[in-house]
Design a protein around this nucleic acid. Structure first.
Lengths: 220, 220
DNA sequence: CCTACCGATCGGTAGG
DNA sequence: CCTACCGATCGGTAGG
């Protein structure tokens, strides 16, 4: 209500000046990269949703963080829910991509090496650069509408299914003793929970973490 | 504003009837068990906070779930934050108590048996009867004020510290390969995450879960 | 994308 | 504990 938000759009140029589109200046006409502004919103939303939660974050917070006025996010996203969904979907997409890259980069891997790769990739997705999206996905599931949840569930199954053959192999070779399905749930939980306690700024390395996790789960 | 909430308090009994305290009837005068109503609020709040999250739950929701009018929760709790804190504190208190009972009930336990007890007690706290309090504690941490967080942190340290000697012993005996501190974080994460996927109504037993977890973490 | 709003909801309170 | 409210905030929209 009294929030100036940013001191941008006071009409400093009256009728005398040649008419110019309001809002922040654009360098050329064909640079109007809508995708860019849209993505700024996504990143701001991801960051705020992660820190304060979906319900406690206002669309005004998000607009301000992206340097916009309070009504502007709705030019890019129909509603706050749609914004949340977009954050999660992008998170899952990049998570899946990174997971696949990691697995492909291994040459003739043993199942143990594959597990270590999956673990390492998961930590990367959770704590690496641009890592606000997936924690939102993990912790704001209940804020989604049923239909959105269905779509994301498919991506999640896709992500998790990469673990299955690896865990099966480890179970068969005696490296893993727990039932595969429960093992996957428990392992992914152990890793995902690190969002609550791992602080990337404190210097501990993701590699060290991954080693500890593999040592915890595997026999010998 | 236009919310009738519950069709309770329309003055169906005019001036003719003998005056009677409004609201739900009390059986006798000295039964006015304030602690009971207060606790009904706590339970209703825990349930709603767990299902919808703190920010998305209104004090009106809570009041209605406890059979009260919208302003009444503030007779028992100064603010919504205080209610949240009370839920978490009670959750930690009973979790610590249950954990201690479990450990005491073991006669001459091996470290492996102790771990299994701790795991089982943790699942009980998360999924047993009256299990809404601790999930709220786990998932609504960020909604707390700094001062409240400090108080709860002490209880959390107390709860977690019970794990340390057990894990140390298991590490020394070669049953546990990961560094103890990281192992504790990962294990507690694996267990706590089950809030996201375990459905008590689906029949799977907490004992089976505990067995799988121990099998996952321990060598042989 | 900004301006200027609206309608609804929400935490909380005074007074009994 | 209920009644009757208030002040603030919030998601969203019309119109440019």
């Amino acid at each position: 209500m009294k929030a100036p938000e940013t001191v941008t759009a006071i009409p400093a140029t009256p009728d005398t000046a040649p008419k110019r589109p309001r809002g922040r200046p654009r360098k050329t006409v064909d640079e109007r990269d809508d995708g860019n502004r849209r993505h700024e919103l996504l990143r701001a939303a991801a960051k705020l949703f992660r820190r304060k939660g979906f319900a406690a974050t206002t669309t005004r917070d998000i607009a301000a963080a992206a340097g916009m006025q309070s009504g502007s996010p709705f030019y890019h996203f129909k509603s706050k829910d749609v914004l949340l969904f977009a954050v999660m979907e992008e998170g899952m997409q990049t998570a899946i991509a990174r997971q696949q890259q990691t697995l492909m980069a291994l040459k003739n891997p043993t199942p143990v090496e594959q597990l270590r790769g999956l673990v390492r990739a998961h930590f990367e997705v959770l704590h690496g650069p641009g890592s606000d999206f997936i924690p939102v996905m993990l912790y704001e599931h209940r804020s989604l509408l049923a239909r959105q949840r269905t779509v994301l569930a498919k991506l999640q199954v896709q992500y998790e299914s990469a673990w299955n053959p690896v865990l099966e192999a480890l179970h068969a070779s005696g490296h893993l003793r727990a039932p595969v399905k429960l093992a996957r749930l428990l392992i992914l939980g152990a890793l995902s929970w690190s969002v609550q306690w791992f602080d990337p700024k404190k210097g501990a390395s993701l590699d060290g973490l991954a080693d500890a996790a593999v040592a915890l789960f595997l026999k010998e």
